[in-house]
Design a protein around this nucleic acid. Sequence first.
RNA 1: GUGGCUGUAGCUCAACGGUUAGAGCGUCCGGCUGUGGCCCGGAAGGCUGCGGGUUCAAGUCCCGUCAGCCACCCCA
Length: 412
Amino acid sequence: MTYQTIRGFRDILPPQSDAFSFIEKISREIFTLYGYREIRIPAVEYFELFIKSTGETTDIVQKEMYRFKDASGRDLALRPEGTPGVARAYINNNLSQTGLNGKYFYIADMFRAERPQAGRYRQFEQIGAENIGASSPYSDAESAAMLAEIFKRLGAENLRLEINSLGCPSCRPKYREKLISYLSSQKDLCSSCLQRLEKNPLRVLDCKIDGPKLTDFPSIELCGDCAVHHEKFKKCLSLSKVDFFENPKLVRGLDYYQRTVFELKTSSLGAQDAVAGGGRYDGLIKDMGGPASPAVGWALGADRAAMIIEKRWGEFEKKSNVFLVSADKERGDYCFSLAQFLRSENISCDFSDFSLSFKSQMRSADKSGALFAAIAGEDEEKNGEVSLKNLFSKEQKKVKKEELTEIIKRSL
RNA sequence: GUGGCUGUAGCUCAACGGUUAGAGCGUCCGGCUGUGGCCCGGAAGGCUGCGGGUUCAAGUCCCGUCAGCCACCCCA
Protein backbone atom coordinates (compact mmCIF):
# COMPACT_ATOMS: atom_id res chain seq x y z
CA MET A 1 0.00 0.00 0.00
CA THR A 2 1.37 3.37 -0.95
CA TYR A 3 0.00 6.83 -0.48
CA GLN A 4 -0.25 9.79 -2.77
CA THR A 5 0.21 13.25 -1.39
CA ILE A 6 -2.97 15.21 -0.77
CA ARG A 7 -4.02 17.30 -3.73
CA GLY A 8 -2.23 20.62 -3.72
CA PHE A 9 0.33 19.51 -1.11
CA ARG A 10 3.75 18.30 -2.08
CA ASP A 11 7.27 17.34 -1.13
CA ILE A 12 9.99 19.87 -1.81
CA LEU A 13 13.20 18.04 -2.58
CA PRO A 14 16.76 19.07 -3.40
CA PRO A 15 17.71 21.04 -5.35
CA GLN A 16 14.40 22.92 -5.07
CA SER A 17 14.65 22.92 -1.29
CA ASP A 18 18.10 24.49 -1.64
CA ALA A 19 16.53 27.23 -3.74
CA PHE A 20 14.00 27.85 -0.97
CA SER A 21 16.80 28.12 1.58
CA PHE A 22 18.59 30.56 -0.66
CA ILE A 23 15.50 32.72 -1.09
CA GLU A 24 14.92 32.72 2.66
CA LYS A 25 18.54 33.59 3.34
CA ILE A 26 18.58 36.51 0.90
CA SER A 27 15.29 37.76 2.30
CA ARG A 28 16.56 37.68 5.87
CA GLU A 29 19.64 39.61 4.86
CA ILE A 30 17.60 42.31 3.16
CA PHE A 31 15.12 42.49 6.04
CA THR A 32 18.00 43.09 8.42
CA LEU A 33 19.33 45.75 6.10
CA TYR A 34 15.98 47.52 6.27
CA GLY A 35 15.45 47.22 10.02
CA TYR A 36 12.82 44.48 9.99
CA ARG A 37 12.70 41.84 12.71
CA GLU A 38 11.16 38.40 12.57
CA ILE A 39 7.73 37.57 13.92
CA ARG A 40 6.39 34.03 14.17
CA ILE A 41 2.65 33.64 14.31
CA PRO A 42 0.30 30.67 14.63
CA ALA A 43 -0.87 28.63 11.67
CA VAL A 44 -4.35 28.48 13.20
CA GLU A 45 -6.54 31.42 14.18
CA TYR A 46 -10.22 32.00 14.79
CA PHE A 47 -12.03 31.96 11.47
CA GLU A 48 -13.61 35.26 12.33
CA LEU A 49 -10.23 36.98 12.37
CA PHE A 50 -10.00 36.51 8.63
CA ILE A 51 -13.53 37.75 8.00
CA LYS A 52 -12.63 40.95 9.82
CA SER A 53 -9.29 41.48 8.14
CA THR A 54 -9.01 39.75 4.79
CA GLY A 55 -12.62 40.63 4.09
CA GLU A 56 -15.95 38.87 4.16
CA THR A 57 -16.57 39.25 0.44
CA THR A 58 -13.15 38.12 -0.75
CA ASP A 59 -12.75 34.81 -2.53
CA ILE A 60 -10.10 33.84 -0.01
CA VAL A 61 -12.61 33.93 2.82
CA GLN A 62 -15.66 32.86 0.86
CA LYS A 63 -14.32 29.79 -0.85
CA GLU A 64 -10.65 29.11 -0.20
CA MET A 65 -10.40 28.70 3.55
CA TYR A 66 -9.46 25.55 5.41
CA ARG A 67 -12.07 26.02 8.07
CA PHE A 68 -12.76 23.50 10.81
CA LYS A 69 -14.09 23.06 14.28
CA ASP A 70 -11.79 21.73 16.96
CA ALA A 71 -12.81 19.28 19.69
CA SER A 72 -14.31 22.01 21.82
CA GLY A 73 -16.29 23.43 18.94
CA ARG A 74 -14.26 26.55 18.25
CA ASP A 75 -14.56 27.89 14.71
CA LEU A 76 -10.98 27.87 13.45
CA ALA A 77 -9.07 28.18 10.21
CA LEU A 78 -5.64 27.57 8.77
CA ARG A 79 -4.17 30.97 7.89
CA PRO A 80 -4.61 31.87 4.20
CA GLU A 81 -2.27 34.86 4.47
CA GLY A 82 -0.02 36.47 7.04
CA THR A 83 -1.22 40.02 7.54
CA PRO A 84 -4.23 39.23 9.78
CA GLY A 85 -2.11 37.24 12.20
CA VAL A 86 0.57 39.91 12.35
CA ALA A 87 -2.06 42.60 12.90
CA ARG A 88 -3.66 40.49 15.65
CA ALA A 89 -0.27 39.94 17.29
CA TYR A 90 0.51 43.65 17.07
CA ILE A 91 -2.69 44.45 18.92
CA ASN A 92 -2.59 41.61 21.46
CA ASN A 93 0.99 42.28 22.48
CA ASN A 94 0.61 46.06 22.60
CA LEU A 95 3.48 46.40 20.17
CA SER A 96 2.60 50.02 19.54
CA GLN A 97 3.90 50.71 23.05
CA THR A 98 7.40 49.28 22.68
CA GLY A 99 8.99 52.49 21.48
CA LEU A 100 10.49 50.47 18.67
CA ASN A 101 9.43 50.52 15.06
CA GLY A 102 6.66 48.22 13.92
CA LYS A 103 8.62 46.47 11.20
CA TYR A 104 8.12 42.72 11.17
CA PHE A 105 8.81 40.01 8.64
CA TYR A 106 7.60 36.44 8.55
CA ILE A 107 8.44 33.32 6.60
CA ALA A 108 5.52 30.96 6.90
CA ASP A 109 3.32 28.48 5.10
CA MET A 110 -0.15 29.58 4.07
CA PHE A 111 -3.16 27.45 3.17
CA ARG A 112 -5.80 28.02 0.54
CA ALA A 113 -8.12 25.39 -0.88
CA GLU A 114 -7.85 26.43 -4.50
CA ARG A 115 -7.68 24.12 -7.48
CA PRO A 116 -3.95 23.51 -7.83
CA GLN A 117 -1.72 23.92 -10.82
CA ALA A 118 1.96 24.67 -11.26
CA GLY A 119 2.85 27.68 -9.11
CA ARG A 120 -0.35 27.42 -7.12
CA TYR A 121 -0.50 25.07 -4.19
CA ARG A 122 -2.79 24.57 -1.25
CA GLN A 123 0.11 24.90 1.13
CA PHE A 124 2.58 27.52 0.00
CA GLU A 125 5.30 29.57 1.58
CA GLN A 126 4.96 33.29 1.85
CA ILE A 127 7.69 35.67 2.87
CA GLY A 128 6.09 38.86 4.06
CA ALA A 129 6.93 42.22 5.54
CA GLU A 130 4.68 44.55 7.50
CA ASN A 131 5.49 48.05 8.68
CA ILE A 132 2.85 49.00 11.21
CA GLY A 133 2.62 52.55 12.49
CA ALA A 134 4.20 54.04 9.39
CA SER A 135 2.13 56.59 7.54
CA SER A 136 4.53 58.38 5.27
CA PRO A 137 5.02 57.65 1.59
CA TYR A 138 8.67 57.06 2.38
CA SER A 139 7.56 53.89 4.09
CA ASP A 140 5.61 52.79 1.02
CA ALA A 141 8.67 53.35 -1.14
CA GLU A 142 10.96 51.68 1.36
CA SER A 143 8.70 48.65 1.47
CA ALA A 144 8.40 48.31 -2.30
CA ALA A 145 12.09 48.99 -2.85
CA MET A 146 12.97 46.32 -0.32
CA LEU A 147 10.84 43.86 -2.28
CA ALA A 148 12.52 44.83 -5.52
CA GLU A 149 15.92 44.48 -3.90
CA ILE A 150 15.23 40.92 -2.81
CA PHE A 151 14.39 39.85 -6.34
CA LYS A 152 17.33 41.72 -7.71
CA ARG A 153 19.65 39.79 -5.42
CA LEU A 154 17.95 36.56 -6.33
CA GLY A 155 18.96 37.23 -9.90
CA ALA A 156 15.36 37.15 -11.11
CA GLU A 157 14.70 38.62 -14.51
CA ASN A 158 11.69 39.74 -16.51
CA LEU A 159 9.92 41.18 -13.51
CA ARG A 160 7.67 44.18 -13.57
CA LEU A 161 6.61 46.26 -10.57
CA GLU A 162 3.15 47.68 -11.11
CA ILE A 163 1.72 50.33 -8.83
CA ASN A 164 -1.54 52.15 -8.33
CA SER A 165 -3.41 54.17 -5.74
CA LEU A 166 -6.85 53.10 -4.64
CA GLY A 167 -7.56 56.30 -2.71
CA CYS A 168 -8.85 56.55 0.80
CA PRO A 169 -12.26 56.63 2.52
CA SER A 170 -12.70 60.23 1.47
CA CYS A 171 -12.08 59.81 -2.25
CA ARG A 172 -12.74 56.19 -3.04
CA PRO A 173 -16.53 56.14 -2.48
CA LYS A 174 -17.04 58.87 -5.08
CA TYR A 175 -14.93 56.98 -7.56
CA ARG A 176 -16.80 53.84 -6.82
CA GLU A 177 -20.10 55.49 -7.75
CA LYS A 178 -18.64 56.92 -10.88
CA LEU A 179 -17.22 53.59 -11.88
CA ILE A 180 -20.48 51.77 -11.24
CA SER A 181 -22.39 54.13 -13.48
CA TYR A 182 -19.74 53.80 -16.17
CA LEU A 183 -19.76 50.02 -15.97
CA SER A 184 -23.55 49.90 -15.94
CA SER A 185 -23.52 51.62 -19.29
CA GLN A 186 -21.24 48.96 -20.72
CA LYS A 187 -22.77 46.08 -22.61
CA ASP A 188 -21.47 42.52 -22.79
CA LEU A 189 -19.93 42.30 -19.35
CA CYS A 190 -19.21 38.71 -18.40
CA SER A 191 -21.40 37.07 -15.79
CA SER A 192 -18.88 37.26 -12.98
CA CYS A 193 -18.29 40.93 -13.70
CA LEU A 194 -22.01 41.61 -13.44
CA GLN A 195 -21.80 40.29 -9.90
CA ARG A 196 -18.63 42.22 -9.17
CA LEU A 197 -20.34 45.40 -10.29
CA GLU A 198 -22.09 45.68 -6.96
CA LYS A 199 -19.60 44.13 -4.59
CA ASN A 200 -16.32 45.44 -5.89
CA PRO A 201 -16.50 47.38 -9.14
CA LEU A 202 -12.76 47.97 -9.12
CA ARG A 203 -12.22 44.30 -9.73
CA VAL A 204 -14.02 44.48 -13.06
CA LEU A 205 -11.12 46.49 -14.43
CA ASP A 206 -8.83 43.62 -13.54
CA CYS A 207 -10.98 41.01 -15.33
CA LYS A 208 -9.17 39.16 -18.09
CA ILE A 209 -12.22 39.10 -20.32
CA ASP A 210 -13.74 42.52 -19.82
CA GLY A 211 -10.72 44.43 -18.60
CA PRO A 212 -9.04 44.82 -21.98
CA LYS A 213 -12.25 46.09 -23.57
CA LEU A 214 -12.64 48.88 -21.03
CA THR A 215 -10.37 51.45 -22.55
CA ASP A 216 -12.22 54.64 -21.68
CA PHE A 217 -12.96 53.89 -18.04
CA PRO A 218 -12.82 56.85 -15.65
CA SER A 219 -9.66 57.03 -13.62
CA ILE A 220 -9.69 57.76 -9.93
CA GLU A 221 -9.66 61.34 -8.77
CA LEU A 222 -7.49 61.21 -5.71
CA CYS A 223 -8.16 63.64 -2.94
CA GLY A 224 -5.42 66.14 -2.17
CA ASP A 225 -3.75 64.07 0.52
CA CYS A 226 -3.85 60.88 -1.51
CA ALA A 227 -2.47 62.63 -4.58
CA VAL A 228 0.44 64.10 -2.64
CA HIS A 229 1.09 60.73 -1.04
CA HIS A 230 1.09 58.96 -4.37
CA GLU A 231 3.42 61.44 -6.05
CA LYS A 232 5.86 61.20 -3.18
CA PHE A 233 5.72 57.43 -3.31
CA LYS A 234 6.65 57.48 -6.98
CA LYS A 235 9.40 60.00 -6.46
CA CYS A 236 10.96 57.89 -3.73
CA LEU A 237 10.84 54.80 -5.89
CA SER A 238 12.81 56.73 -8.46
CA LEU A 239 15.23 57.87 -5.79
CA SER A 240 15.66 54.20 -4.96
CA LYS A 241 16.34 53.51 -8.63
CA VAL A 242 13.45 51.08 -8.75
CA ASP A 243 11.67 50.81 -12.10
CA PHE A 244 7.89 50.75 -11.93
CA PHE A 245 4.83 50.98 -14.14
CA GLU A 246 1.65 52.72 -13.23
CA ASN A 247 -1.31 50.48 -13.84
CA PRO A 248 -4.61 52.25 -13.15
CA LYS A 249 -6.37 48.89 -13.40
CA LEU A 250 -4.29 47.30 -10.66
CA VAL A 251 -6.63 46.20 -7.90
CA ARG A 252 -5.84 43.90 -5.04
CA GLY A 253 -8.12 41.11 -3.99
CA LEU A 254 -8.08 41.89 -0.30
CA ASP A 255 -10.46 44.36 1.23
CA TYR A 256 -8.10 46.22 3.50
CA TYR A 257 -5.95 48.09 1.00
CA GLN A 258 -6.03 51.88 0.70
CA ARG A 259 -3.92 54.28 -1.29
CA THR A 260 -0.74 52.52 -2.40
CA VAL A 261 -0.99 49.06 -3.93
CA PHE A 262 1.67 47.25 -5.89
CA GLU A 263 2.31 43.91 -7.49
CA LEU A 264 5.40 42.23 -8.85
CA LYS A 265 4.60 40.32 -12.01
CA THR A 266 6.54 37.84 -14.07
CA SER A 267 6.11 36.78 -17.65
CA SER A 268 7.46 33.29 -17.05
CA LEU A 269 4.82 31.61 -14.92
CA GLY A 270 1.73 31.37 -17.12
CA ALA A 271 -1.45 32.38 -15.39
CA GLN A 272 0.25 32.57 -12.00
CA ASP A 273 1.98 35.81 -12.87
CA ALA A 274 1.96 37.52 -9.48
CA VAL A 275 5.07 36.71 -7.47
CA ALA A 276 4.47 39.34 -4.85
CA GLY A 277 1.85 41.86 -3.88
CA GLY A 278 1.12 44.38 -1.22
CA GLY A 279 0.10 47.85 -0.31
CA ARG A 280 -1.09 50.20 2.37
CA TYR A 281 -3.74 49.21 4.88
CA ASP A 282 -4.23 52.21 7.13
CA GLY A 283 -7.60 51.21 8.51
CA LEU A 284 -7.02 47.58 9.38
CA ILE A 285 -5.46 47.75 12.84
CA LYS A 286 -8.17 50.06 14.13
CA ASP A 287 -10.95 48.03 12.52
CA MET A 288 -9.61 45.01 14.34
CA GLY A 289 -9.90 46.76 17.68
CA GLY A 290 -6.38 48.10 17.96
CA PRO A 291 -4.97 51.59 18.14
CA ALA A 292 -5.35 53.64 14.96
CA SER A 293 -2.21 52.61 13.10
CA PRO A 294 -1.36 53.18 9.48
CA ALA A 295 0.57 50.35 7.89
CA VAL A 296 2.11 49.09 4.70
CA GLY A 297 3.28 45.63 3.73
CA TRP A 298 3.60 42.92 1.14
CA ALA A 299 4.08 39.20 0.71
CA LEU A 300 5.98 37.23 -1.87
CA GLY A 301 5.40 33.63 -2.92
CA ALA A 302 8.56 31.66 -2.23
CA ASP A 303 7.38 28.89 -4.56
CA ARG A 304 6.95 31.23 -7.47
CA ALA A 305 10.21 32.99 -6.68
CA ALA A 306 11.90 29.59 -6.78
CA MET A 307 10.36 28.81 -10.16
CA ILE A 308 11.59 32.07 -11.60
CA ILE A 309 15.18 31.20 -10.76
CA GLU A 310 14.89 27.52 -11.64
CA LYS A 311 17.89 27.70 -13.97
CA ARG A 312 20.10 28.49 -10.99
CA TRP A 313 18.97 25.71 -8.64
CA GLY A 314 22.13 23.71 -9.23
CA GLU A 315 24.23 26.54 -7.80
CA PHE A 316 22.55 26.30 -4.44
CA GLU A 317 23.35 22.67 -3.69
CA LYS A 318 25.69 22.27 -0.80
CA LYS A 319 28.45 19.77 -1.36
CA SER A 320 30.79 18.24 1.17
CA ASN A 321 34.36 19.40 0.97
CA VAL A 322 35.93 16.05 1.74
CA PHE A 323 34.93 12.48 0.92
CA LEU A 324 36.50 9.72 3.01
CA VAL A 325 37.60 6.57 1.23
CA SER A 326 39.00 3.47 2.89
CA ALA A 327 41.61 1.58 0.90
CA ASP A 328 40.55 -1.69 2.46
CA LYS A 329 37.80 -3.10 4.61
CA GLU A 330 39.89 -2.97 7.80
CA ARG A 331 40.24 0.80 7.66
CA GLY A 332 36.61 1.63 8.51
CA ASP A 333 37.22 2.71 12.11
CA TYR A 334 40.16 4.88 11.17
CA CYS A 335 38.29 6.59 8.33
CA PHE A 336 35.21 7.08 10.43
CA SER A 337 37.14 8.72 13.22
CA LEU A 338 38.86 10.93 10.63
CA ALA A 339 35.45 12.01 9.36
CA GLN A 340 34.31 12.89 12.85
CA PHE A 341 37.57 14.73 13.46
CA LEU A 342 37.11 16.83 10.31
CA ARG A 343 33.56 17.64 11.27
CA SER A 344 34.72 18.78 14.69
CA GLU A 345 37.05 21.11 12.81
CA ASN A 346 34.08 22.48 10.84
CA ILE A 347 35.07 20.80 7.61
CA SER A 348 32.11 19.19 5.90
CA CYS A 349 32.70 15.63 4.84
CA ASP A 350 30.93 12.48 3.83
CA PHE A 351 31.59 8.84 3.02
CA SER A 352 29.69 5.99 1.43
CA ASP A 353 30.37 2.52 2.85
CA PHE A 354 33.84 1.52 3.99
CA SER A 355 33.10 -2.13 3.29
CA LEU A 356 32.56 -1.46 -0.41
CA SER A 357 35.33 -1.79 -2.96
CA PHE A 358 37.84 0.98 -3.36
CA LYS A 359 36.60 1.69 -6.85
CA SER A 360 33.03 1.98 -5.69
CA GLN A 361 34.00 4.41 -2.96
CA MET A 362 35.99 6.51 -5.40
CA ARG A 363 33.02 6.67 -7.74
CA SER A 364 30.89 7.93 -4.88
CA ALA A 365 33.56 10.48 -4.04
CA ASP A 366 33.45 11.70 -7.62
CA LYS A 367 29.68 11.94 -7.73
CA SER A 368 29.51 13.75 -4.41
CA GLY A 369 31.22 16.73 -5.98
CA ALA A 370 33.64 16.99 -3.05
CA LEU A 371 36.85 18.90 -3.62
CA PHE A 372 39.00 16.28 -1.87
CA ALA A 373 39.06 12.55 -1.46
CA ALA A 374 40.77 11.58 1.79
CA ILE A 375 42.12 8.08 1.32
CA ALA A 376 43.45 5.91 4.10
CA GLY A 377 44.92 2.41 4.05
CA GLU A 378 47.22 0.44 6.27
CA ASP A 379 50.25 2.71 5.71
CA GLU A 380 48.37 5.90 6.39
CA GLU A 381 46.86 4.55 9.58
CA LYS A 382 50.22 3.33 10.82
CA ASN A 383 51.72 6.80 10.36
CA GLY A 384 48.70 8.79 11.48
CA GLU A 385 48.30 10.15 7.96
CA VAL A 386 45.82 10.35 5.15
CA SER A 387 46.31 10.64 1.38
CA LEU A 388 44.58 13.80 0.34
CA LYS A 389 43.59 13.88 -3.32
CA ASN A 390 42.25 16.95 -5.04
CA LEU A 391 39.58 15.50 -7.27
CA PHE A 392 39.76 18.35 -9.75
CA SER A 393 43.53 18.77 -10.15
CA LYS A 394 44.25 15.10 -9.33
CA GLU A 395 47.12 16.18 -7.08
CA GLN A 396 47.64 13.82 -4.19
CA LYS A 397 49.89 13.82 -1.18
CA LYS A 398 50.12 12.24 2.22
CA VAL A 399 49.50 14.57 5.12
CA LYS A 400 49.61 14.15 8.88
CA LYS A 401 46.27 14.26 10.63
CA GLU A 402 47.43 17.35 12.56
CA GLU A 403 48.06 19.27 9.34
CA LEU A 404 44.87 18.17 7.60
CA THR A 405 42.62 20.97 8.80
CA GLU A 406 44.92 23.74 7.74
CA ILE A 407 45.72 22.28 4.35
CA ILE A 408 42.08 21.74 3.53
CA LYS A 409 40.94 25.12 4.78
CA ARG A 410 43.61 26.81 2.73
CA SER A 411 42.16 25.29 -0.44
CA LEU A 412 38.51 26.17 0.17
C1' G B 1 -15.58 25.49 -7.79
C1' U B 2 -16.12 24.83 -13.84
C1' G B 3 -14.08 22.82 -18.44
C1' G B 4 -10.12 20.11 -20.95
C1' C B 5 -5.56 16.98 -21.35
C1' U B 6 -2.57 13.22 -18.91
C1' G B 7 -1.07 9.01 -15.31
C1' U B 8 3.63 2.58 -17.80
C1' A B 9 10.99 1.46 -14.10
C1' G B 10 14.24 6.84 -10.24
C1' C B 11 13.73 10.26 -15.05
C1' U B 12 12.14 10.88 -20.38
C1' C B 13 9.20 7.84 -23.15
C1' A B 14 7.79 3.03 -26.36
C1' A B 15 4.40 -1.26 -26.62
C1' C B 16 -2.11 -2.83 -33.31
C1' G B 17 -7.21 -5.28 -27.73
C1' G B 18 -3.18 -10.86 -28.29
C1' U B 19 3.43 -14.77 -25.74
C1' U B 20 7.19 -13.40 -20.21
C1' A B 21 5.39 -4.89 -20.67
C1' G B 22 10.60 -2.65 -23.55
C1' A B 23 14.47 1.38 -24.71
C1' G B 24 17.64 5.44 -23.52
C1' C B 25 19.45 7.90 -19.40
C1' G B 26 20.21 7.12 -14.22
C1' U B 27 21.33 3.49 -10.08
C1' C B 28 24.25 -0.75 -8.22
C1' C B 29 28.21 -4.44 -8.90
C1' G B 30 32.36 -5.95 -11.67
C1' G B 31 36.50 -5.42 -15.53
C1' C B 32 41.01 -2.30 -12.47
C1' U B 33 43.41 -7.20 -5.47
C1' G B 34 45.17 1.29 -3.43
C1' U B 35 42.81 5.69 -7.32
C1' G B 36 36.99 8.72 -9.69
C1' G B 37 34.98 10.82 -14.49
C1' C B 38 35.53 7.77 -20.36
C1' C B 39 34.89 2.79 -22.09
C1' C B 40 33.21 -2.38 -21.63
C1' G B 41 30.34 -6.41 -19.14
C1' G B 42 26.50 -7.74 -15.89
C1' A B 43 22.49 -6.92 -12.39
C1' A B 44 18.63 -4.76 -9.76
C1' G B 45 14.38 -2.05 -10.47
C1' G B 46 6.99 -2.55 -12.70
C1' C B 47 0.31 -5.30 -9.05
C1' U B 48 0.99 -0.15 -16.12
C1' G B 49 -1.98 5.51 -9.88
C1' C B 50 -6.21 2.86 -7.46
C1' G B 51 -11.16 0.27 -7.90
C1' G B 52 -14.86 -1.73 -10.87
C1' G B 53 -16.85 -3.13 -15.84
C1' U B 54 -16.78 -5.05 -21.16
C1' U B 55 -14.04 -9.19 -23.57
C1' C B 56 -11.80 -15.81 -24.79
C1' A B 57 -7.99 -11.95 -23.75
C1' A B 58 -7.14 -5.06 -21.03
C1' G B 59 -1.17 -1.08 -20.14
C1' U B 60 -4.58 -0.47 -24.42
C1' C B 61 -11.86 0.10 -24.52
C1' C B 62 -15.84 2.00 -20.76
C1' C B 63 -17.18 3.99 -15.77
C1' G B 64 -15.69 5.74 -11.13
C1' U B 65 -11.94 7.58 -8.03
C1' C B 66 -7.20 9.72 -6.67
C1' A B 67 -3.25 12.69 -8.49
C1' G B 68 -0.62 16.04 -11.99
C1' C B 69 -0.85 19.68 -15.83
C1' C B 70 -3.57 23.66 -18.85
C1' A B 71 -7.39 27.34 -19.14
C1' C B 72 -11.19 29.73 -16.26
C1' C B 73 -11.35 31.62 -11.47
C1' C B 74 -8.21 33.52 -7.81
C1' C B 75 -3.83 35.13 -6.00
C1' A B 76 1.66 34.67 -3.68
